[in-house]
Amino acid sequence: MADQLTEEQIAEFKEAFSLFDKDGDGTITTKELGTVMRSLGQNPTEAELQDMINEVDADGNGTIDFPEFLTMMARKMKDTDSEEEIREAFRVFDKDGNGYISAAELRHVMTNLGEKLTDEEVDEMIREADIDGDGQVNYEEFVQMMTAK
C-alpha cells in the first residue's frame, strides 16, 4: 500500500514521523504519540494510545517504525480525509473560533508540534493556502489545501 505514495508524500511523512519521534530513535512510543496528540489539544487515554499503536504495529514490538507509519498514512489517505476530520483539524488551528486561521494561530500550532518556523515560513504557508488574498485561511481554503492532490 505504501508503494502507491509519491516521493514527495514519503518525504512529508518522514518529516511528520520525526515530529512524533521525539528522541530520534526511529520508533514512536505511546508516550511520544501522547505528547504530540496533547500538543494538538487531544486528550487520549493510555489505552487509546496503545490501541492506536497496536493498529499499525505490524511486528508487534509495541512501537511504530517508519515503514509501519507509512502504511498507516497510506491507509488513512485511501479513506481520504472525511469532512469531519478536516473540520476537526481546522478547529485545532482556529484557536479563537472566528472561522479563520491567522498567521499567529498557525505559528502557535506548529510551535506546539515542535516545528520552529520563521515568520517568513509561516507567512508563506498562509499565502499558499490563501486563495482570496485576505491574509488568513478560511474553512473553504483549508479544505482545498487539505484535499489538493
Rank of each mutant, 00 (worst) to 15 (best):
1 M>R: 08
2 A>V: 13
2 A>C: 06
2 A>E: 14
3 D>P: 09
3 D>A: 05
3 D>M: 07
4 Q>C: 07
4 Q>I: 08
4 Q>F: 06
4 Q>K: 11
5 L>K: 10
5 L>A: 04
5 L>P: 11
6 T>W: 05
6 T>V: 15
8 E>A: 05
8 E>R: 00
8 E>N: 15
8 E>D: 11
8 E>Y: 08
8 E>P: 04
9 Q>H: 11
10 I>Y: 02
10 I>K: 00
11 A>G: 10
12 E>C: 15
12 E>F: 05
12 E>W: 07
13 F>W: 10
14 K>T: 08
14 K>C: 01
15 E>D: 13
15 E>H: 10
17 F>C: 00
17 F>P: 00
17 F>A: 00
17 F>Y: 04
19 L>Y: 06
19 L>K: 15
20 F>L: 12
20 F>N: 03
21 D>H: 07
21 D>Q: 08
22 K>V: 09
23 D>S: 00
23 D>F: 01
24 G>E: 08
24 G>D: 12
25 D>M: 07
25 D>P: 05
26 G>I: 15
26 G>W: 10
28 I>K: 07
28 I>G: 01
29 T>H: 05
29 T>S: 07
29 T>D: 02
30 T>P: 09
30 T>Y: 04
30 T>N: 03
30 T>W: 00
32 E>V: 13
34 G>E: 11
35 T>N: 05
35 T>H: 04
35 T>F: 10
36 V>T: 15
36 V>M: 10
37 M>S: 03
37 M>H: 07
37 M>D: 08
37 M>L: 11
38 R>F: 02
39 S>F: 00
40 L>G: 03
41 G>K: 04
42 Q>Y: 07
42 Q>W: 04
42 Q>T: 04
42 Q>P: 08
42 Q>C: 04
42 Q>K: 05
43 N>K: 10
46 E>M: 15
46 E>Y: 01
47 A>E: 14
48 E>R: 06
49 L>R: 14
50 Q>F: 06
50 Q>I: 14
51 D>P: 03
53 I>Y: 13
54 N>C: 03
56 V>L: 12
56 V>R: 04
57 D>L: 02
57 D>S: 04
57 D>P: 00
57 D>H: 08
57 D>I: 02
59 D>H: 15
59 D>W: 04
59 D>V: 09
60 G>Y: 11
60 G>I: 07
60 G>W: 07
61 N>G: 07
61 N>I: 10
62 G>Q: 15
63 T>N: 05
64 I>P: 15
64 I>T: 13
64 I>S: 10
65 D>L: 06
65 D>H: 03
66 F>Y: 12
66 F>T: 01
68 E>K: 12
69 F>R: 01
69 F>S: 07
69 F>T: 01
70 L>C: 03
70 L>Y: 10
72 M>F: 14
73 M>N: 15
74 A>I: 01
74 A>H: 07
75 R>P: 09
75 R>W: 07
76 K>C: 15
76 K>Y: 15
76 K>Q: 02
78 K>I: 12
79 D>Y: 11
79 D>P: 09
80 T>G: 11
80 T>L: 13
80 T>R: 08
81 D>H: 00
82 S>I: 09
82 S>L: 12
82 S>C: 15
82 S>P: 05
83 E>D: 07
83 E>G: 12
84 E>Y: 09
85 E>I: 14
85 E>S: 00
86 I>A: 09
87 R>G: 05
87 R>T: 06
87 R>F: 13
88 E>K: 11
90 F>G: 08
90 F>E: 12
90 F>T: 06
91 R>C: 02
91 R>E: 06
91 R>N: 06
92 V>Y: 14
93 F>C: 03
93 F>H: 11
93 F>I: 03
94 D>Y: 07
96 D>E: 10
98 N>R: 10
98 N>V: 03
98 N>W: 07
99 G>M: 05
99 G>W: 08
100 Y>S: 07
101 I>P: 01
101 I>A: 11
102 S>W: 15
103 A>Q: 06
103 A>V: 09
104 A>M: 12
105 E>H: 15
106 L>H: 09
106 L>E: 06
107 R>Q: 05
107 R>L: 13
107 R>M: 15
107 R>W: 04
108 H>I: 13
109 V>S: 05
109 V>M: 11
110 M>E: 02
111 T>A: 12
111 T>H: 04
111 T>C: 07
112 N>V: 07
113 L>I: 11
114 G>H: 10
114 G>M: 07
114 G>N: 14
114 G>P: 05
114 G>D: 02
115 E>D: 10
116 K>L: 14
116 K>A: 00
116 K>Q: 14
118 T>H: 06
118 T>V: 12
118 T>F: 10
119 D>R: 10
121 E>R: 10
123 D>L: 00
124 E>M: 03
124 E>Y: 02
125 M>N: 00
125 M>P: 01
125 M>D: 05
126 I>S: 13
128 E>F: 09
128 E>I: 11
129 A>V: 12
130 D>M: 04
130 D>R: 02
130 D>P: 01
130 D>I: 01
132 D>W: 04
133 G>A: 10
133 G>L: 02
133 G>Y: 15
134 D>P: 09
134 D>N: 13
135 G>S: 14
135 G>T: 03
135 G>I: 03
136 Q>K: 00
136 Q>R: 13
136 Q>Y: 02
136 Q>C: 01
137 V>P: 11
137 V>W: 13
137 V>F: 08
138 N>H: 11
138 N>Q: 08
139 Y>D: 13
139 Y>F: 13
140 E>M: 13
141 E>S: 06
142 F>K: 08
143 V>F: 02
144 Q>M: 01
144 Q>W: 05
144 Q>R: 13
145 M>R: 02
146 M>C: 07
146 M>T: 11
147 T>G: 15
148 A>L: 05
148 A>Y: 05
148 A>W: 14
148 A>R: 06
